[in-house]
Design a protein around this nucleic acid. Sequence first.
DNA 1: CCGCTAAATGTTATATTATAACATAACACT
DNA 2: AGTGTTATGTTATAATATAACATTTAGCGG
Lengths: 164, 164
Amino acid sequence: MPRNRVLMPFKSPGHAHQRCLENAIAGAEKNCRARGARLTRLRRRVLELVWGSHEPVKAYDILELLRREHSGSAPPTVYRALDFLQAEGLVHRIESLNAYVGCGEPQYGHSAQFLICQECGTVAEMDDLDIRKLLSSKAGAIGFLVNHETIEIKGTCSACQAAE
Amino acid sequence: MPRNRVLMPFKSPGHAHQRCLENAIAGAEKNCRARGARLTRLRRRVLELVWGSHEPVKAYDILELLRREHSGSAPPTVYRALDFLQAEGLVHRIESLNAYVGCGEPQYGHSAQFLICQECGTVAEMDDLDIRKLLSSKAGAIGFLVNHETIEIKGTCSACQAAE
DNA sequence: CCGCTAAATGTTATATTATAACATAACACT
DNA sequence: AGTGTTATGTTATAATATAACATTTAGCGG
């Protein structure tokens, strides 16, 4: 496995999202089965809604969609499902946006680096060992032991730069 | 100026906080005067409250303190002051905590890296060029142009490690 | 100093995000 | 089927943040 990868690239012209989503769900099913985690109907549906795009999705937007399918949905419905999905590493929370994105490479509680395009809203996920190593070493230089990283980078993706 | 620095170290045993706070306020006054920004009574007071400790302070905690001094305080009072202070680089918002910390080295809109101790709540601010360069280069590798970084690292500070 | 303008603050209301607490239902295991 | 556990439903409320408009204050040219 390459040590530095872009887990979710910015949409290429030919991005087949239906396929992308199906892969994500299938992967999630497999992962959960392997670990004995229960990816229930509701949780899977929330995962699908988060994966609806490569843009961050807000909890209350998910709620609104859920309510169309099942009127008994309420905030806890969504937040509990998101908590589960996060714990399983199937989605990530973008702290600076109060929103959620699907994870391209589920891994129990791993952290990653997010590139957020301020023009189109698309988010790419990197999982770069060099970055983690450098942060760890810089923190270590003042005796700090790293447990978890939140790295969210805002800027302009290549497609949007080209479009200017 | 050294290119990599820890702007706010974890509390050393002898940390003289009164002095630290006074320096911060004096520096802010100077900075604002130099730039024609108006550090009003209210804004300065909010800055003092944020600098009350090296732990992140929440907007509504500031509000409660303000109300003891002036009953006409309301959420916008606090959020406007915080917006100003952030714009001037005098405080930073910690996205993952919905809270604010004073900035040790005010600089118009600069970004930084935060080390947040999960034991004692103390936050240290680093402003490390190597980290910025690496992030920029890794993002650049997929054509992404960086505008702003949010880097918040949670873990254990050296004092708390020693105390275990 | 006066009056004008722009900026800051006051005030009321409300939007947005998230969790507590307890009831009910579904599941997994014997 | 019985029982303990996990998930979901339901109601209420907490915590965070902003909109919109009124009033006050500061800066500045005259």
